[in-house]
Write a protein that binds this DNA or RNA. Structure first.
Lengths: 323, 323
DNA sequence: CTGAAAGCGCTTACAG
DNA sequence: CTGAAAGCGCTTACAG
């Protein structure tokens, strides 16, 4: 079923059908009605491929995340959806799983002109080849930073936030503070580790331990905590995500230790999960991060040589029972 | 940058470039090399819109979910991704949020020929207009059922599973068993409620209470539990999702009651979350559900008039500290 | 207000 | 083994 058939059915030219489809107001009421009638009768649906090929515009944006199962990520995505919708865009989600092949495949939607722009929550800094794939297409990094100066990004001040979290633990009398971090290919992971270490040095603490989780799941957090408990266990743990912290909590409990008496735990993100398990955490303005990312992207789409922006939003320390 | 430019650069016809792009083996090595060279030099990326328009094939499938933040959902999606990849397909995720407008917008990717087929985890049964949008395009319902006989689906036997869960509570001596259910527009919600009620009748219990959560979040589960606690509180709760159960747990704890002594709690799905919070639950074979859904869809894509299938997979009761 | 025609960037018989 | 040409289904100046 194509525009041609409709034109035939309605007894007009394809141009007229197209005009009706695009709400052009130059179509006579009579013709418009006949076209509308034909469309309804034949249950016609426009071919988006053809339209987008012709107009070079899709009003779709791609959102690449490494793990949709992460609640922080899901929250950011909600912010992105809201704002995108407000601007007449729809979003396509691509779950990369940090897999390079899958990322490449996702990016082809961009280079293949299926979407108008991309928002990434992935660590692309370590992957120049992927960044090259994006080329000069509209791109915004979200809750993660680009090393190169050409891509806009939005997030929080990770060094400050992690310094604050770790300071709170130290000031609460904790002497042996460990960190559960994510893969260092993420810039935010490097920044938060920097914040952690700076406090360890500042407070002149002797103990220092960083365990790396392979992914932001509770299971990975549990495994990391179990490693920390093996010998010379800490009396406090700072995890870079609430999901990791949830796993740590579980491991501590399984080891027969108490939270916060034996080990205090602080998470990161401020997700609903943290609330459910009474976890002290750093709250990120997730929705706002998503919304702002869309704003920056819209700007870039409408004005390709808009200057690169780096937006830092506010975070908040939330004290609960775990620390 | 188009195939034309490449042809020009390489000194061949566009047909030859296209052949190289599609790995046709009828191209002379010399020409192939020149084309490859030109592609590399100009950083050419094929326009997918044009290709898909021409071939009427995208090797992409759309996955519509109502809420990616639900961990069960995320797990099913992982299964879908795995299996799709194995078949040379990539997946596009669309988070409908159960919003009809957004669902419609997502479905236009199908009717607009951008994807070859669709897997839905949404409740479309109540929305014949959306089903109409899909028309006869390849479609599989996942972890949810279609009333109409024309669409394939894969899931578990929800009546059996919920009967089992509620029976366990009753046989453990619970007399006042409540249910926290999801929106009844979901068929699975209706089936699980049927299972719950059948046990209440079978065991001749007098108490019966069903609270409906607006969405599958912990927050909604908390609110539902708070309602149940207001007057005449239950001594056990069966929730149709682990996330809802997590919220119920939290509400019970905040009310100063103990789990399972005062109130036993059983969830549904068997997610990592349930493990983290020691929740008794019904485990669904999430990954397998996703994988099977893809298999059915592939079948439908390759063979449009393949018969409709309804696949039921096994579930498992997992006993933990909450009941 | 409307239609004929060009063109978006590909692929694929067809002819050589 | 290769190229010229048709065509996928749209939109949009252009002419009337």
């Amino acid at each position: 079923m194509s525009i041609q058939k409709i034109a035939q059915l309605a007894g007009v030219s394809v141009a007229t059908v197209s005009r009706v489809l695009n709400n052009s107001d130059t179509v006579k009421a009579k013709n418009r009605d006949r076209v509308l009638q034909a469309i309804k009768e034949s249950n016609y649906q426009p071919n988006l491929l053809a339209r987008q090929l012709r107009t070079a515009r899709s009003y779709m944006i791609l959102v690449m995340v490494s793990n949709i199962a992460n609640p922080f990520c899901a929250e950011v995505v909600k912010g992105i959806e809201e704002e995108a919708e407000k601007n007449g865009y729809r979003i396509l989600l691509c779950n990369s799983g940090s897999d390079i092949e899958r990322s490449r495949s996702g990016l082809s939607l961009l280079s293949g002109k299926i979407v108008d722009g991309i928002i990434t929550m992935d660590a692309f800094s370590k992957l120049p080849e992927l960044a090259a794939l994006i080329g000069s297409a509209p791109w915004v990094q979200c809750a993660e930073y680009a090393d190169a100066g050409t891509v806009s990004c939005v997030g929080i001040n990770d060094v400050d936030a992690s310094q604050h979290a770790v300071s709170q633990l130290a000031e609460g009398g904790r002497q042996r503070i460990a960190m559960i971090n994510h893969d260092l290919s993420y810039k935010y992971a490097r920044l938060r580790e920097r914040g952690y270490k700076s406090v360890i040095h500042l407070k002149d603490l002797e103990y220092q331990a960083v365990e790396y989780a392979s992914e932001l799941s509770s299971r990975a957090g549990m495994a990391a905590m179990q490693n920390l408990l093996k010998e010379n266990p800490p009396d406090a743990v700072f995890a870079v995500s609430d999901t990791l912290a949830a796993g740590a909590l579980r491991a501590i409990q399984q080891a027969g230790l108490r939270v916060p008496e034996d080990i205090a735990v602080v998470g990161f993100d401020g997700t609903e999960l943290a609330d459910m398990i009474s976890l002290t955490t750093i709250e990120q303005p997730s929705r706002d991060i998503g919304r702002k990312a869309v704003d920056l992207l819209m700007n870039k789409i409408d004005n390709p040589d808009a200057p690169t922006e780096r937006v830092m939003l506010d975070w908040r320390f939330i004290s609960r029972a775990s620390a």
